[in-house]
Design a protein around this nucleic acid. Structure first.
Lengths: 331, 331
DNA sequence: AACATTTCCGCAAATGTTTTCGGTGGAAAA
DNA sequence: TTTTCCACCGAAAACATTTGCGGAAATGTT
C-alpha cells in the first residue's frame, strides 16, 4: 500500500478535510499540535509524497532550471554544471540539462523544451549563431530569467557571467613576452563568438602596444581536429614557431596531439601556453602552463546570480571572473 | 499577449467548449475540419503551449527519465549521457541528471528526488555501497523501471547493462602476455564494485591458467591520485615493473602523471595498456593502447532497454557490450 | 414518415494541491 | 446575558488538461 498516498486518502482515514491535512503537513499554525501529530504519523506510515505535478500546476513553479550547453562532454561545462547543481540542490532546485551540439536548430529546440517544461530559469552558453539572440528576448519578456555564461551574446540587455577574457589573454601575452618568444603561433576558437574576439583583441593589443619585434601569427579553428592540423602544418614548415598559444582546452588538445606526433620537445623546441580549465594541462609531460579559467567558479557565480533573480527581478548585469596563472613546465 | 494561453482562453474566444478545443488540437476525428482549422489558427496566434504539469497530473506520466551517476565530470559517463539523451529526445523524453559524488546518502537523496519528481524510469550507476540495493527493490516494486549500467549490483533481479568486463580484462591479459612482459603492475579500482572484481578475476585467471612465469602484481586504488602514488612508488623502487595495466581512464590518468614526472619512457622502459573510453589515451605520447569500452554504445543499449520496458514490463535481463582492442604506441 | 445512423460537439468528472474565505464552538470580556 | 475573540477546522474554487458519455442536428434508410 501507500503506493500513491494522497492528501485525500489521508483525510479520509482520519476523517479530516483535505485542507486540514495539507496544512498539518506544512505546520500551519491554524492546526492543533495533536492533529498535526496524527496526520504526520499516518503520512509517514502511508509513505505520502506530495505530487509534484499538482504542486507545479497549482503554484506555476517547477523548481527546475534549464541548463543548455553546446556539449556535455567538455571538462569546462562539466565543472560548471557540477557547481550549479550543487548550489541548486541546496535550494531545492533540479537541473534540466540539454545539449545543443553546435546546431542552431537544436538550440532552438532546447529553448522550446525549456519553455514547454516551464523551467524557472535558464542557464545557457550559446552556440556561434547570432540569429538566436532574437529568441532570448522573448524568453526574457515572458518573465523567466535567462543567464548567459561563458559564450554570451554581445548585447548588454542580458545577464551575463563570463570569464575575464581580456585579462586572461593579456596575462598570457605578457607571460609569453616575458619569456622572450619570437615566433608565436596563437590559436583561437570560432571567430563569431564574443569570447574569441575579446581574447584575440586583447592578446594582439599587448603585442602592438609593447612594440615587440615580432607579432604573433593568429589562426582560428573550430575544433580540436582543426587545431591539430594547423599546428601539424606549422611545425613541419620552414619557419617553425617557438611558441604556441591556445585559447582553450579544446584547442590545446589538438595542438598537443600534433606536437606529440612530431619529434619536437616542449618547451625546448617549442613552448606552450594555454587558457584552460585546469584538467587537461596536467595530463601532459611536462605539464602545460596555463591561465586558469574555472568552470566551477563560474558556475557558482551563475547560480548565485540566478537565485538573486528569483528573489527580485534586477537590472541585467555582467559579472566577470578573474583568472590566474598556473605554472607548469611548458614555458 | 499569449503569455499563458490555455485551452480555456481559446475556447472562450471561439465560443467552443474546452473539450472541443483540446480534441481539435490533437486531430480527434470527432471534430470537423473547419473547427480544427479555426482552433489551430488561434492556438498558433496565441502561441498556445500545452501545460506540461496539467498533462502530467492527468496522465501520471512525466516523460522524464532520471539518470544518476557518481559524477558528471567523467568522460565515460559523459558519453553515456550523450547517447541516452540523443535517443530519449527522439522519443520525447527529457533527462533529470543527478550526481551522487560517491556519497551513499547523496545517492539515496537522488533516488528520492527521482521518485518525488515522478520520473518514468531511472538509469543508475551505483556507488560502492551494497546497502543501497534495498532501496532499489522498492522502486522496482513501485512499478518504475530501473536500469543499472556500468557499476551494477550483483543481484540478478535487476535490469543491467554493462561492459564486457571479463572479456576486456581477458583481452588485456592476452595482449600483455603476447608482448612477453615480465613484471606487470596491474591497477584496479574500488574492490567493492562488481566491475572491479570481475575484471580483476578474469585478468589474473588468464595468468594462472596459462602458467606464465610471472604473476601480475595487483593493486587497488580509489582515485586517480592513489593510482599516481602507487605507480610513483613502484617505478622508483628497486624492482621496477616493465608494464602497467590500468583498468580505467581514471587510473590511467594517475599512472601517466606518475610516468610523466619520471624519466622513464613509454614503451621502452615501461609499457602501458588500459581499459578506456577512448578519449584519454589519445592525449599522450605515444598514444596509449587500450581496450575500448564505449560509454556511448552502452548508453544506446541502456535507452533501448528502457524503452522496451516502457512498452511492457519484461523479465530482468543482463546485457553485455563487447569490447575491442585499439592499438596505440604504448606497448 | 418513421426510424437508424452519422457527424459534431458539450458536460462533467477526475487528476492532487494550495489557498481564500468562512464557519463553529467555547472561553473570556463586557 | 450578550458580545468578542481565538483556536481550530472545512467547503470550494482554482490550476490546465483528458476522456467517457451523452445529446442534438443532419443525413441516410426503409
Amino acid at each position: 500500500m501507500g503506493q500513491n498516498a494522497t492528501l485525500k486518502k489521508i483525510s479520509v482515514q482520519l476523517d479530516l478535510s483535505i485542507s486540514t491535512v495539507s496544512r498539518a503537513l506544512k505546520n500551519h499554525p491554524d492546526i492543533s499540535e495533536s492533529t498535526k501529530r496524527k496526520v504526520k504519523e499516518l503520512a509517514a506510515l502511508m509513505e505520502y509524497e506530495p505530487n509534484t505535478y499538482a504542486i507545479n500546476l497549482r503554484t506555476n513553479k517547477s523548481n527546475v532550471f534549464g541548463l543548455i550547453v553546446p556539449a556535455i562532454s567538455n571538462m569546462f561545462y562539466d565543472s560548471f554544471i557540477s557547481a550549479v547543481e550543487e548550489e541548486a540542490r541546496k535550494k531545492g532546485y533540479s537541473l534540466l540539462i540539454l545539449q545543443s551540439g553546435d546546431d542552431p536548430s537544436q538550440e532552438a529546440e532546447n529553448l522550446k523544451l525549456c519553455k514547454h517544461s516551464r523551467v524557472d530559469g535558464i542557464f545557457i552558453s550559446v552556440i556561434p549563431n547570432t540569429r538566436s539572440a532574437e529568441l532570448f528576448v522573448k524568453y526574457q519578456q515572458s518573465g523567466i530569467p535567462v543567464i548567459f555564461f561563458d559564450k554570451v551574446p554581445e548585447s548588454d540587455t542580458f545577464d551575463k557571467i563570463c570569464l575575464a577574457d581580456e585579462e586572461a589573454a593579456v596575462m598570457a601575452a605578457h607571460t609569453i613576452i616575458k619569456y622572450n618568444k619570437k615566433k608565436i603561433l596563437a590559436l583561437f576558437g570560432n571567430p563569431e563568438l564574443s569570447i574569441t574576439r575579446k581574447r584575440k583583441e586583447a592578446f594582439t593589443d599587448v603585442f602592438n602596444k609593447n612594440r615587440v619585434k615580432t607579432k604573433p601569427q593568429v589562426r582560428f579553428c573550430n575544433s580540436s581536429e582543426e587545431a591539430r592540423q594547423i599546428v601539424s602544418l606549422a611545425i613541419s614548415g620552414q619557419s617553425r614557431p617557438d611558441h604556441i598559444f591556445c585559447m582553450s582546452d579544446e584547442i590545446l588538445i589538438g595542438a598537443m596531439k600534433a606536437l606529440n606526433h612530431s619529434d619536437l620537445s616542449v618547451p625546448e623546441d617549442v613552448s606552450v601556453l594555454a587558457i584552460s580549465n585546469g584538467f587537461i594541462p596536467g595530463l601532459f609531460k611536462p605539464e602545460i602552463t596555463y591561465i586558469e579559467t574555472s568552470g566551477y567558479e563560474l558556475g557558482k557565480l551563475a547560480i548565485k546570480r540566478m537565485l538573486e533573480n528569483m528573489e527580485s527581478k534586477t537590472a541585467p548585469k555582467s559579472i566577470i571572473l578573474p583568472s590566474r596563472l598556473v605554472e607548469g613546465g611548458s614555458l
